[in-house]
């Protein structure tokens, strides 16, 4: 698959500071299935980059590659301008990349503080430093202006879906992370709770973090995203600024890989059909 000679969809981000995360010509296959072809992606600190695409477009594979769960077959992975090698999740964490998966991976029987520090507990001697953990958890939640949690000593089993999502996001932020990847954070939520979580996503970016938001919900995307990257059958159809495109254009990019002069050339979309 020699796609590298084809016109790369250049992100229309001139004038911005250098990206926090930069992927170039990423390829990934599982056996005979070519899942990602020459994908480029730029994520900027302080911005929400929405990653959209239909089922099977390669969103999850791309994210898992960034998070170190898979490694890419070829292509450049630049973090803060430096080429890095991320072969396992620990390496991604060390760089400051945290992923909030759709299932949240919370322990219902533990409270909010315990969950936020799970596997990375603060210790004093051999005992857990509960006081320090609680005040750090509190500080992180305050920093995100989270008002919905009554007590950080509540068990997660007593929290609503939106509160759980909040805890999972706060956990990702706790570790001085620079890039937070959110996988469908609003998929299971009602209207009010979706609103809360989207506000939180916006605040993450306003606090200077880079955010990748995977979502199927175009309203969510248009509401919070600064940047929209649309994947179409394993190729990056376009990465555009949210204010430059309409709802309809995004849907076209997702469903056919092109919209007007945006997106892939007809032969590219045709070739992969």
């Amino acid at each position: 698959m020699s796609m590298s000679s084809g016109p790369t969809p250049a992100p229309s981000t001139a004038g911005d500071p250098p990206p926090l995360l930069s992927l170039r010509n990423i390829d990934k296959s599982f056996g005979a299935v070519h899942v990602l072809r020459s994908v480029d992606l730029d994520v900027y600190a302080g911005q929400v980059t929405a990653l959209v695409g239909d089922n099977g477009a390669g969103k999850s594979t791309l994210i898992k590659g960034v998070a170190g769960i898979y490694s890419f077959d070829s292509g450049d992975y630049l973090f803060e301008g430096q080429p890095v090698v991320v072969h396992d999740p620990k390496a991604a964490n060390a760089l400051g990349i945290e992923v909030v998966y759709q299932d949240l991976a919370l322990c219902d029987n533990l409270d909010v503080v315990h969950n936020m520090f799970l596997g990375r507990e603060e210790k004093r001697g051999i005992t857990l430093d509960e006081d320090d953990m609680e005040s750090r958890a509190r500080k992180t939640l305050d920093g995100l202006s989270v008002r919905t949690l009554k007590s950080v000593r509540q068990k997660v089993s007593s929290l609503s879906g939106g509160q759980r999502q909040t805890v999972a996001i706060a956990r990702a932020v706790l570790w001085n992370s620079k890039l937070v990847i959110l996988d469908e954070p609003t998929a299971a939520l009602g209207v009010a709770q979706t609103e809360q979580v989207l506000n939180l996503v916006r605040r993450l970016a306003d606090n200077g973090l880079g955010v990748i938001l995977i979502s199927h919900n175009m309203n969510d995307v248009m509401q919070v995203a600064d940047n929209i990257a649309a994947l179409y059958l394993g190729q990056m159809a376009a990465q555009v600024k949210a204010k430059d495109v309409s709802h309809g254009q995004i849907v076209e990019l997702i469903t056919s890989g092109r919209s007007g002069d945006l997106g892939l050339h007809p032969q590219q979309t045709g070739a992969s059909a």
Binding site: P89, L104, A105, C107, L110, H114, G119
Partner: peptide, 24 residues
């Protein structure tokens, strides 16, 4: 109740997959 090991016991009992992903 007071050691990291104990906390991990509760975590594994509550959600083994979450515990595994947390590096336990």
């Amino acid at each position: 109740g007071r050691t990291a090991f104990g906390r991990h016991v509760y975590a594994v009992g509550g959600n083994a997959e979450a515990a595994r992903r947390a590096g336990i």
